[in-house]
């Protein structure tokens, strides 16, 4: 359903969208039912149709049933949603699938710094590629990210990936994503981080395998102005 507004582009997003649809189905039913009953009762028992009200306490057993049965049904729906959401949560946030590559994400007021290990696949070597507000990844590969913040709390959010994680100064948070298809996607900061919060936009470029390898080769030397960025060691 979210797909209609913003197309999903990641592996974990598929599950989240399905969960969203499940919840929409369940709560949508209750919502429509409750609204229909509400308006129906207001219409049916308007004074013009019902000049004298009944005396119903709602305290007797056969009356309480009208609340008790929906009560149990709501609880059942809750159980279904809880089961679904636990599954999705553990897939997206808890179990990281084996990584094809790792990216370090640093955030500060008001920019993102993405560090890729470069062609050799090892961090802290001269061919590391650090880029401000620009992340290049390979389509289909599982990326682990290591997320932190320099100053205040930021939030790494890629709406098209259904991916969101706060970057907290003082801690290193790990997570994963895997893009489904090539393209350019928005990266946003989703946590209020000061007056430049609205400026913390970045781009996520998903590339095919060969294209990405070429990009890594071409950019293996770190641009000079970025050497100053200190990525805190875990």
């Amino acid at each position: 359903m979210i797909d209609l507004l913003l197309k999903n582009a990641s592996r974990s997003g598929v599950e989240i969208d399905k969960l969203f649809d499940l919840i929409t189905f369940l709560v949508g039913f209750w919502f429509l039912l409750a609204e229909a009953v509400l308006f129906g009762l207001v219409f049916r028992f308007h004074r013009s149709r019902s000049p004298r009200a009944l005396y119903v306490s709602g305290e007797e057993k056969h009356q309480k049933r009208w609340i008790a049965v929906p009560h149990v049904l709501v609880l059942l729906c809750d159980v279904v949603i809880i089961a679904g959401t636990m599954l999705v949560w553990s897939h997206v946030k808890q179990q990281l699938p084996p990584a094809d590559a790792v990216v370090r994400i640093g955030s500060q007021q008001w920019a993102w710094v993405f560090t890729l290990p470069g062609p050799d696949g090892v961090f802290d070597t001269p061919d590391d590629i650090a880029r401000v507000n620009e992340l290049h990844v390979r389509s289909g590969a599982v990326y682990h990210f290591e997320l932190t913040a320099q100053d205040v709390i930021h939030c790494f959010s890629v709406p098209a990936f259904r991916l969101k994680q706060d970057a907290v100064p003082g801690r290193l948070i790990k997570g994963w994503f895997a893009a489904l298809e090539p393209g350019r996607y928005d990266i946003q900061c989703a946590e209020m981080c000061g007056i430049g919060h609205g400026l913390m936009a970045a781009s996520l470029y998903v590339e095919e395998k060969e294209q990405h390898a070429r990009w890594l080769q071409e950019n293996a030397a770190p641009p000079r102005e970025l050497v100053a960025f200190r990525f805190p060691n875990p």
């Binding site: 808890q94 990281l96 003082g170 801690r171 290193l172 948070i173 805190p232 875990p234």
Partner: peptide, 9 residues
């Protein structure tokens, strides 16, 4: 914790 660790402060 799971998937997070404190950085040296």
């Amino acid at each position: 914790g799971q998937n997070w660790g404190a950085l040296a402060a």
